[in-house]
Design a binder for these strands. Structure first.
Length: 564
RNA sequence: UGUCCUGUGGUGUAAUUGGCAACACGUCUGAUUCUGGAUCAGAAGAGUUCAGGUUCGAAACCUGACAGGACAACCA
């Protein structure tokens, strides 16, 4: 094992936040691993990271940091048939964006291909591994089932000398894909399927994204992972629950390898499930490949890049990770928690702006034609230091169509005929007439304003029940706004026994509005800049934006207290 | 008819290791407000899957059920 110089920490001062940290505290108390804590985040570069990975990243980097330890980034690239540098790049970008740093500790499982090969040779020499020429079907048949023990392969007792020769030929490309594999000799009658002479190496004659054509045999996950942990000096190898049954095998290989008291320890926790979405890389890949979404970074996707494009901040995602906690219980977390986290974060930080996404034109009939006033508006009521800006006001404005009702029900206290409301930061207005087209649809409102209410308050002290957002028709910036809703109509799309998850896709998950008007302030905004559109929600600039076409994504709506 | 893991308000977690089940999200009131946002105050909602047992005392320990999940890829 390499010398690692991370510092030890007094465990007394640390209060464990979950069962993993508790185990680390216990390990430290027992003096294990010389007091070191070293974790790793080990993605396979075969897809984009999603919010479940974000939870794991926060856990691994966060826990190590808490104990004064280190975290490695290690790409688990043992299968060239599935992996690609495109994914390597995106993964590094996402980890960094989330706010974590592996410093100079960037590794690949492929860094260890030579060492793994040598270790395999040593196992063969000890009679603990053999080359098996049976077909995959036969090997699978011999493995038995979880309830029925397996039986030995006829190749199980080949001599080490012969195995060595065969394995060398495997490595040298003498055989083709599927001809043979190297298996560990463990226990064909173990109740644990993974112990029934697991495969260590298989032949894949495909170039690898890093080792290119140096190898035609590649180690299996079970044969590679624990050894990589060992060589990197990992103390706590944190993974998800489905690897729980692999742990005896993980330990078996480490036992064959270790030459000191140090040993990495695998600890499993339950993966994150989020309501109204899917979190499997395979399913997400399918959504992308089959065009159900526009790409890995479609703002409806639970991928880190999708959420980033949607307007989520790293802070909000870390807060969310913290909030859901770490256990071994597998459940479904309500997306409402994620939405809470982004609202809470953006409420404190987002620049306020007024934007009308479903415009209804109003004319202030008693307001001078041609006059444009510059109205003071607060940039963020939660943060004085963000200052103020000017918003143009004139005779023709847009308000939100849903802020007017001709025949309002009891609890509706926005604009209606004869009723007075406030236009935010500017004046009180009263609706005098609703103009309709031949179809009877309201196309325009005529209103009057009270010049005495400039700034938003009446000198006579009279009150209004509602304050509406608005934009000046002539000065507003026209924009496209994309509204997102949950990707699936079912909270647990994979839990539905009758329907395939694709049938449960929400047909209204994307709504594109093209006739939106936003106050001129947003003109200079850059892609991914976020705003609160007052009374509507948080929106950010989509990278599809061009100089003459501005596109917003709705990150999340504001909580709406108005219920019909 | 195997092995392993997991069962605490609607949801996610906690209960300093055996001492009155707590917190957050969500929901619902009310106050306040130039965002029906935010903020503030409050409420409802579990007696810890069930049945036994140990104990002065059990969510926790033991036994047995029941329920859910994982494992039979030359995937990770």
């Amino acid at each position: 094992m390499a010398e690692i110089d991370n510092k030890t920490v007094e465990q007394e001062e640390i209060i464990p936040k979950n069962f993993i940290q508790q185990q680390i505290v216990d390990d430290l108390a027992e003096g294990k691993n010389g007091g070191r804590v070293h974790t790793r985040f080990p993605p396979e570069p075969n897809g984009y990271l999603h919010i479940g990975h974000a939870k794991s990243i926060c856990l691994n980097f966060g826990t190590a940091k808490k104990f004064g330890g280190l975290t490695n980034l290690r790409f688990d690239d043992t299968n060239p048939a599935k992996e690609d540098t495109e994914y390597v790049d995106s993964i590094m970008e996402d980890v960094q964006w989330l706010g974590f740093d592996w410093d100079d500790r960037l590794y690949y499982a492929s860094d260890y291909f030579d060492k793994l090969y040598d270790f395999a040779v040593s196992l063969i020499k000890k009679g603990k591994a053999y080359v098996d020429f049976q077909s995959p079907e036969l090997i699978s048949e011999q493995k038995g089932t979880p309830t029925r023990p397996g039986s030995d392969s006829p190749y199980r007792n080949t001599t080490p000398e012969e195995n060595l020769e065969l394995f060398t030929k495997m490595k040298d490309g003498f055989y083709n894909d599927g001809d043979c594999v190297l298996r560990a000799k463990v226990d064909m009658s173990s109740p644990n399927m993974h112990m029934r002479d697991p495969l260590m190496y298989r032949i894949i004659k495909q170039p690898h994204h890093r080792t290119e054509d140096k190898w035609c045999i590649y180690p299996m996950y079970d044969y590679a992972h624990g050894q990589c942990d060992y060589w990197e000096g990992i103390t706590h190898s944190i993974c998800t629950l489905e690897f729980e049954v692999h742990r005896p095998l993980y330990d078996w290989f480490v036992d064959q390898l270790k030459d000191s008291d140090y040993r990495p320890r695998q600890i499993e926790f339950s993966r994150l499930n989020l309501s109204y979405t899917v979190m499997s890389k395979r399913k997400l890949l399918q959504l992308v490949k089959e065009g159900f979404v526009k790409g890995w970074d479609d703002p409806r996707m639970p991928t880190i890049c999708g959420l980033r494009r949607r307007g989520y901040t790293p802070e909000s995602m870390r807060a969310f990770s913290d909030m859901v906690g770490i256990t071994k219980v597998d459940g479904v977390t309500d997306v409402a928690k994620l939405e809470f986290c982004i609202r809470e974060d953006l409420n404190k930080r987002a620049q306020r702006v007024m934007g009308v996404i479903d415009p209804l034109k109003i004319v202030i009939t008693n307001y001078p034609e041609g006059l444009v006033e510059e109205i003071d508006a607060v940039n963020n009521p939660e943060d004085e230091s963000m200052g103020k800006r000017k918003v143009p006001f004139s005779r023709e404005l847009y308000i939100e169509r849903e802020d007017f009702m001709e025949n309002p029900p009891n609890k509706f206290y926005r604009l209606s005929p004869g009723r007075e409301v406030r236009l935010r930061y500017s004046y009180f207005i009263k609706c005098t007439e609703a103009i309709k087209n031949e179809a009877g649809e309201i196309v325009e409102l005529h209103c009057t304003y009270d010049p005495e209410t400039k700034g938003g308050n009446a000198p006579d002290g009279r009150k209004v029940k509602a304050t509406l957002h608005w934009v000046a028709a002539a000065q507003a910036v026209k924009a496209e706004v994309r509204l997102y809703d949950r990707l699936f109509t079912d909270a647990d799309p994979l839990g539905n026994k009758e329907k395939d998850f694709l049938e449960l896709l929400n047909p209204d998950s994307l709504k594109v509005l093209t006739q939106c008007y936003i106050e001129p302030f947003v003109k200079t905004a850059k892609p991914l800049d976020g705003f609160q559109f007052e009374r509507l929600g948080y929106f950010n600039i989509d990278p599809d934006t061009t100089t003459d076409h501005i596109v917003f994504n709705r990150t999340v709506s504001l909580k709406d207290g108005f219920k019909k």
